[in-house]
Write a protein that binds this DNA or RNA. Structure first.
Length: 469
DNA sequence: TTAGGGTTAG
């Protein structure tokens, strides 16, 4: 970095700090701020503090705060938030108590409230909430933070009680979104959909749904399998929100369309995104979605596309999830050679170390292709401990392959050695102990599969074309 | 500076 070529003026640096991505840039900007003698600038120091705080890097955040020549309300609140992000609720409380009166803003109360929620201390959070009501510093944000605290703790009844107490004048779109997400998290997507209907059907002063609302309700539709309603929501909100530039919403829509077999509609959503907009989640959804729809070659093509894109702007790099999606896509489509190659290039080319789940995909891939011996060799040479899923997969294939008696006994012994507290291992041990019944189940299942295959529809064959854009 | 959303084998 050459200081002479860098934009002078703190406004430009401030923009760089708030807009920077990644740890190295943060540190470089921090150095620059120090070199230019701007470390005593409260606004710049606070901006840096926020970055470190969000990343959970408490030590540099604390140092910036301690070295400030004077501290305003924003600096205090940023430090509170940094402590909260690191789960240090008690330290946040001490700082809050130390704050000079005029520096305590509504944001201070709300930040402290979320600190307690994050560490699961709902009683203290509630006490702060009640105190902020008495101090008349509360707003919809305080209520929403408290509602979310109960939602995240799984206490939907308490959340609902506050929701009802808020009344329609105080409830905003975040309140609804929070409740919907809470129901989803608890595994009650129907309740999330009911909440959405209430939001859209309530007369008069109901707030307008946002991209967050739509993303949440679409996810709920995917979970209950109500693709008709999900599609209707998508169509009816398309004008409202415009062509979505929101990565999370696009991701939820693609996931829904892939899961109901509408590959073309999913890809339509993808191509409608501006170039560079799809993030890691979106790419993973596309790769997994193509894979589960029997489009292995297209999944591999999408992966290559993703890697190329990320080399250009250095933003999207495949992660562990990408390779689970990719390898299972190869497995479903019988792409043995491609699967082997991709597995081999994981660490050297992409910096992702293969984990037990990736070995599981490879075992599945090899077994489906009838390469039982290679699958066993792979598991024997695994650098990570094979888990119950890997061994269970091997066991399943070995037993049905006829010549896999040795492999199946080997896998069964490894399963028996696994920690009995591992739920899957425990289940598999029991399963192995009742092999006669298992064989019966297998026969039953293969019968069902034949019936389904005979009546099933051939999936669409439009190819994945990334250049549609 | 404070509240809400998404992907993962068998």
């Amino acid at each position: 970095m050459q200081p002479r070529t860098l934009p002078r003026g703190r406004a430009a640096i401030l923009r760089a700090v708030t807009g920077c991505r990644g740890r190295r840039e943060e540190q470089a900007l921090h150095c620059l701020v120090c070199k230019l003698g701007l470390a005593s600038d409260v606004v710049l120091a606070t901006a840096l503090l926020v970055r470190y705080g969000r990343r959970g890097l408490l030590a540099p955040a604390q140092r910036l705060f301690d070295e400030m020549p004077r501290r305003d309300a924003v600096a205090f609140n940023a430090m509170l938030a940094a402590l909260g992000a690191s789960g240090r609720a008690a330290d946040a409380r001490r700082l809050f108590d130390r704050m000079p009166g005029p520096d305590r803003t509504p944001a201070s109360w709300n930040t402290l409230l979320t600190c307690y929620c994050r560490v699961g201390d709902l009683a203290s959070a509630r006490a702060v909430f009640e105190a902020s009501l008495r101090a008349a510093t509360s707003s919809a944000v305080s209520w929403n933070a408290m509602v979310d605290g109960y939602c995240k703790a799984g206490r939907m009844d308490a959340a609902r009680e506050l929701f009802d107490r808020m009344g329609s004048s105080l409830r905003d779109v975040v309140t609804y979104n929070t409740m919907m997400a809470g129901y989803l998290r608890r595994g009650d997507p129907a309740a999330a959909i009911a909440m959405f209907r209430r939001l859209t059907q309530d007369e008069g002063q109901a707030p307008r749904p946002t991209a967050v609302t739509i993303a949440t309700v679409v996810t709920a539709c995917t979970q209950v399998g109500d693709f008709g309603f999900g599609r209707a929501v998508h169509l009816s909100t398309r004008q409202l929100l415009g062509t979505s530039t929101d990565a999370v919403l696009s991701n939820a829509l693609m996931d829904m369309y892939f899961k109901c077999g509408s590959v073309d509609r999913a890809l339509e959503v993808f191509s409608a995104m501006p170039s560079g907009a799809p993030n890691l989640f979106c790419w993973n959804t596309v790769i997994a979605g193509l894979g589960r729809n029997g489009r292995g070659e297209d999944a591999v093509r999408a992966f290559r596309d993703m890697v190329e894109t990320s080399n250009k702007n250095n933003e999207v790099r495949p992660d562990s999830v990408t390779f689970v999606a990719l390898l299972s896509a190869c497995s479903h489509s019988g792409l043995v050679r491609e699967g082997r190659e991709l597995f081999a290039e994981m660490l050297p080319a992409h910096g992702v170390a293969p984990g037990a789940e990736h070995y599981g995909c490879m075992v599945d891939l090899l077994c489906r292709a009838g390469l039982l011996g290679e699958a066993v060799r792979l598991v024997r040479t695994m650098p990570v401990r094979p888990n119950a899923k890997v061994l269970g997969c091997l066991l399943l294939h070995a037993r049905s392959s006829g010549d896999g008696v040795t492999a199946s006994e080997w896998a069964a012994r490894r399963i028996a050695e696994l920690d009995g507290r591992d739920g899957a291992a425990y289940g598999l041990s029991n399963l192995y102990a009742s092999l006669q019944r298992w064989d019966h189940v297998e026969r039953h299942r293969s019968g069902l599969v034949t019936v389904a295959a005979a009546s099933g529809k051939e999936p669409g064959r439009t190819s994945y074309d990334p250049h549609v854009r």
